[in-house]
Design a binder for these strands. Sequence first.
DNA 1: TAGATTGTTAATCGATTAACAATC
DNA 2: TAGATTGTTAATCGATTAACAATC
Lengths: 207, 207
Amino acid sequence: MTEKKHRIPDVVIRRLPVYLRYLQQLMSYDVDTVSSQQMGHDLNLNPAQIRKDLSIFGDFGVKGMGYRVSELADKLSKILGLDKEIPIVLVGVGNLGAALCRYNRYQKSATKIVGLFDGHPAKIGQVHGSLEVRPMEELVDFVRQNNIKMAIITVPAAAAQSVCDALVAAGVKAILNFAPVLLNVPEGVRVQNSDVTVELQALAYYL
Amino acid sequence: MTEKKHRIPDVVIRRLPVYLRYLQQLMSYDVDTVSSQQMGHDLNLNPAQIRKDLSIFGDFGVKGMGYRVSELADKLSKILGLDKEIPIVLVGVGNLGAALCRYNRYQKSATKIVGLFDGHPAKIGQVHGSLEVRPMEELVDFVRQNNIKMAIITVPAAAAQSVCDALVAAGVKAILNFAPVLLNVPEGVRVQNSDVTVELQALAYYL
DNA sequence: TAGATTGTTAATCGATTAACAATC
DNA sequence: TAGATTGTTAATCGATTAACAATC
């Protein structure tokens, strides 16, 4: 265990959930072990890359045999922090927000939306699943009181930065942003943008 | 104009829509020119990278002065193929599908959803905006007759591959896939995956 | 033991960035 | 002309892949 841990590349972190989902699929088929070769084939990745990614976090494999599926899934869950429930607030209960909310309910995932917020008075009190939409005024207190560290932003572009500021002030450390703006956040806060327009436009190039 | 064009990296293509949106914003503020320095500052990118990206496609800048905003926006639109309307079919009109459909209506974008399809009988005939949901049986003909090259898949994971196969058979060349599965497509067809679960799980790591 | 597959080193490949001559 | 900024080359950085000794 050396002191100077090399920073783990984002690109590796983003592959871990892909591995995890694949392993969970294998588990549902009662597959016990899998080789990097097999994984690489099924996931369209280089086996050496998979072995390298995994070996960053530990010696999870068995030489001559591969990886024990459920054991590796457990390890990856723990590495990602998905072994305990992660409470999330969603801000902006428009069509997309409501869709994400409903989607999340049907997943048995560690990431769980526990609070809905909207700035539009007409939306307050609407119920989505078991959650009632709350007014923006309650956002900061709610985040603080429930020790929430992750948020989803699905408000219009114009409102996104101020929502983001409020979230950050309340202690949120990771934001999944669907608004088409570049959010400004302080050091230590992580933003992941998801932008359908950008994705469609990039795809257009290949036509 | 050399014959052997170096393949343009995907990562460059994915930055172009970001540049484009930024330029359009500048236009709305009546800004005439912008330097790579300024762009880099506003977009959190290295100015040299921006110049390099742009110079792949032509000499768009003016030395000592920067880039003419609206001219560059035009060029980028053309490069991405956004100078003409791109018709899209959306398959799977659940919550997410409906949200994307409504979102698309309010954008003045070149990419335009022109057909909605769903395999669920109850959904057929429902109207979203000006579009009526059609049965899956009509998908292939519709795509062929309207010469559609781009599609959005928002069906459940289990149905995604067969929808994909139908789309590809009908001539679709670019797919934005929201189903949490790795789609199998032949050479020459482009798939872009968008997966909220993967993104949330990767974010969880940084908490 | 023989066969298989890991973990890891070294080689390769590709993308980012710095630096600067060209030039508006 | 002086100042600014491009387009591009060369240097750097980082990620992917091949190869193989270790070992189950």
